[in-house]
Design a protein around this nucleic acid. Structure first.
Lengths: 152, 152
DNA sequence: TCTTGACTTGGAGCGCACTCTAACTTGTAG
DNA sequence: CTACAAGTTAGAGTGCGCTCCAAGTCAAGA
């Protein structure tokens, strides 16, 4: 009944590499996994659940350091639940504002795309300030070592 | 009329450091900025617009490499507009799916927080599998160099 | 003239999150 | 017994996006 997956099976299921799974364990994100007689890791279903949760944290860009802190609290037992909740709340607030920023930026990109579409629709014009201005850019000269003298 | 800002003024307005502004120029994200007689950078309003756009790309996690490619196309003139539009469309699609993933994950975190709240509401119980399981973790032993022999 | 402060450069260094290497052990099949 | 696949470890290496440093230039003020 204990599912007992090998590291490569877990890798396949989670999308993490075996390397990364070992790294997460070393880093303290995953508690030492039970071993087969030969020393090989055998992951239980509960390990998979936890890894799934870590993947949520990663998807929301929580740092390894913070995940480690969270994992440590979890290992310390239920008494730390309030602290963990606090961590998640703080993190979630950051995530939500980051999502909002991304959405605003995505909207701006969408507008820019529309702008390009309009531009293409009306044949090619030769002078268009586009974003900011293009016109007068020199060919991006290679910045030829010089210390004032030929400069001013 | 040309606004002519110094690097530190631009840093203040954009939130980037002067270091980073120079780095972006070296990296080809920003075309060589016009210089005051002494060699100091003087940014025009159009530079600020472009930097603003770069910040949108950064906020949506476009890599420096891709931004450089986009900036290069832009310097090549209006003929590259379709290619740039294509880049933005591809990027935007990735951004939107990444936003969706973040939202799903945020929702899962929110659920976890509710779970903690419920848990706290009902005093402290001593056995709760929480996420995955806690129970049988050993004190995270220090993994004492050994090559089979004391192992099996 | 001397100092101060804001800038310049090339290049080194840093923190993060992996990613890989080398050498080794173990279990299974032929 | 041999060969091979699949795992193990400590530690080195990588790519990214900055971030900082040392040494120098320049303009303005005392």
């Amino acid at each position: 009944m204990e599912t007992q997956l090998t590291i490569n099976e877990v890798a396949a299921r989670t999308g993490l590499s075996a390397h990364t799974l070992r790294y997460y364990e070393r880093a303290g994100l995953i508690a030492p996994v039970t071993r087969a007689p030969g020393g090989q890791r055998r992951y239980a279903a509960s390990d998979l659940d936890w890894i799934g949760f870590l993947l949520r944290l990663r998807a929301t860009r929580m740092s390894i350091g913070q995940m480690r802190a969270f994992a440590r609290l979890r290992r310390e037992g239920n008494a730390t639940a309030p602290e963990r909740r606090q961590m998640l709340e703080t993190h979630l607030a950051a995530v939500e504002s980051s999502i909002e920023l991304m959405q605003q930026s995505a909207k701006a990109l969408q507008a820019k795309i529309e702008h390009y579409r309009a531009l293409e629709g009306s044949a090619q014009k030769d002078s268009n300030p586009d974003e900011g201005e293009i016109h007068a850019y020199k060919p991006l000269r290679k910045r030829t070592r010089q210390t004032a003298g030929d400069r001013r």
